[in-house]
Computed example of a mutant assay.
Amino acid sequence: MPSLLRRIKSKMFIFAHRRTLSLLDGEYGSVFKGRSLDFDELRAYVPGDEVRDIDWKATARHGSPLVKRYVAVRRHSVLLMMDTGRNLAARSLSGEPKKDVAVHAAGVLGYLASRHGDDVGLLHGDAAGSKYIPPRNGEEHLERLLREVDANAPCTGASNIAEQLDYVLRYLKGRLLIVAVADEFLPDTRTVSLMRRLSARHEVLWLTIRDADLAPEDAEKAQDSFDVGTGQGIPMPLAMDATVRAAYAAAMLDRDESRRNIFRTVGIAEEQTTGSEDVLTAVFALLEKHRSGAMSARSSGKDGANAG
Rank of each mutant, 00 (worst) to 15 (best):
P2F: 07
L4C: 02
F13C: 01
I14K: 07
F15E: 09
H17P: 06
T20R: 04
L21Y: 08
S22T: 15
G26P: 00
G29T: 12
G29I: 07
G29A: 15
G29N: 14
R35G: 12
R35D: 06
S36T: 15
S36I: 01
L37N: 06
D38L: 03
D40H: 13
E41S: 14
E41W: 07
R43K: 08
Y45H: 12
V46D: 03
G48H: 00
V51D: 00
R52Q: 09
D53I: 00
K57H: 09
K57M: 01
H62G: 00
H62I: 05
S64M: 03
L66Y: 01
V67N: 01
K68Q: 04
K68D: 00
V71E: 04
V73E: 12
R74P: 01
H76Q: 13
M81Y: 00
R86D: 10
A89H: 10
A89D: 05
A90I: 09
S94K: 04
K98A: 02
V101P: 04
V103T: 02
H104A: 14
A105D: 05
G107C: 13
G107A: 08
Y111G: 02
A113Y: 09
S114L: 07
L122C: 10
L123Q: 09
H124F: 10
S130Y: 00
K131E: 13
I133V: 15
P135W: 08
P135A: 11
N137F: 12
L142A: 12
A151S: 08
N152P: 04
S159D: 12
S159W: 03
N160Y: 11
N160H: 08
Q164H: 06
L172R: 10
G174V: 11
I178T: 11
I178W: 09
V179T: 15
D183A: 01
P187F: 13
T189H: 06
T189E: 14
T191F: 00
T191Y: 01
T191V: 01
V192N: 05
L194K: 07
M195Y: 06
A200Q: 15
R201A: 11
E203L: 15
T208D: 01
D213V: 09
P216M: 03
A219K: 14
E220W: 01
E220F: 00
Q223H: 09
D224I: 00
D224R: 03
S225T: 14
V228L: 08
Q232N: 09
Q232M: 04
G233I: 04
G233N: 13
I234S: 07
I234M: 15
P237A: 09
Y248H: 15
A249M: 13
A250S: 07
R260T: 10
R264T: 14
T265L: 10
V266S: 07
I268H: 06
E271M: 02
E271H: 03
S276I: 08
E277R: 13
A282G: 02
R291L: 11
M295I: 12
S296M: 06
S296A: 11
R298G: 01
